[in-house]
Computed example of a mutant assay.
Amino acid sequence: MRSFVALALTASTLSGCAYNAAPQPRSPLAAQELDRYLAGRVAGRPQACLPSYRSQDMIVVDENTVLFRDGANRYWRTEMVGGCNGLGTPGRALVTKSFGTAQLCRGDIAQVIDTAAGGFFVGGCSFGDFVPYTGPGIRRR
């Protein structure tokens, strides 16, 4: 009986943390940066996973949006589920871990670390779908 109560309490506590944080509106500066990267590109079909070889060049736009550069003409956009508290703050970095796979996928957990304070974890979030944005003259996959 005790384990059931503890499990129910833990589940309700975790669900409250995960869904109480509504994404913050995009700042004018972040909107301008996102437009700069995606201008003239066409959105493709959302994908559940992003192969890890495409995840090497990450661009944090704000607490809600992360881009991955795939060559010169393609970016993959993901919206962090519920936002990623503190990610857009200078001195913060997003750390991802792959376990048994070479991909980042929707629902994978990422952790925010404070690089100025010795790498302490300060938050966490999960990835949404990955949407490819392809530039003119590039064949879409």
Rank of each mutant, 00 (worst) to 15 (best):
P23R: 05
A93K: 14
Y133W: 15
G137D: 02
G40I: 00
Y19H: 06
V112S: 07
P136E: 13
R36V: 08
S55I: 01
I138T: 15
R36M: 04
C105Y: 09
I109S: 06
V60D: 07
L104F: 14
N64H: 09
A93V: 06
P136N: 02
G82L: 04
G91D: 08
T101A: 10
R77S: 10
R92D: 03
Y53T: 13
A39T: 08
D70Y: 12
G82S: 07
A48P: 02
L7N: 01
R139L: 13
Y37L: 06
S3C: 04
S15P: 00
V60M: 12
G124D: 11
A48T: 13
P90E: 13
Y75F: 15
R74H: 03
G128W: 07
A8T: 08
R26A: 07
L94R: 09
D129S: 06
S12Y: 11
V60E: 09
A72Q: 07
C105H: 13
I109Y: 14
A31T: 02
Q47Y: 11
R140V: 02
S15D: 07
A110K: 05
A22L: 10
S27N: 00
G91M: 13
G118Y: 06
Y19M: 02
C17Y: 15
C84R: 00
G118L: 06
G83N: 13
T101N: 07
N64I: 05
V66E: 03
S126L: 04
K97H: 15
N20S: 10
P132K: 06
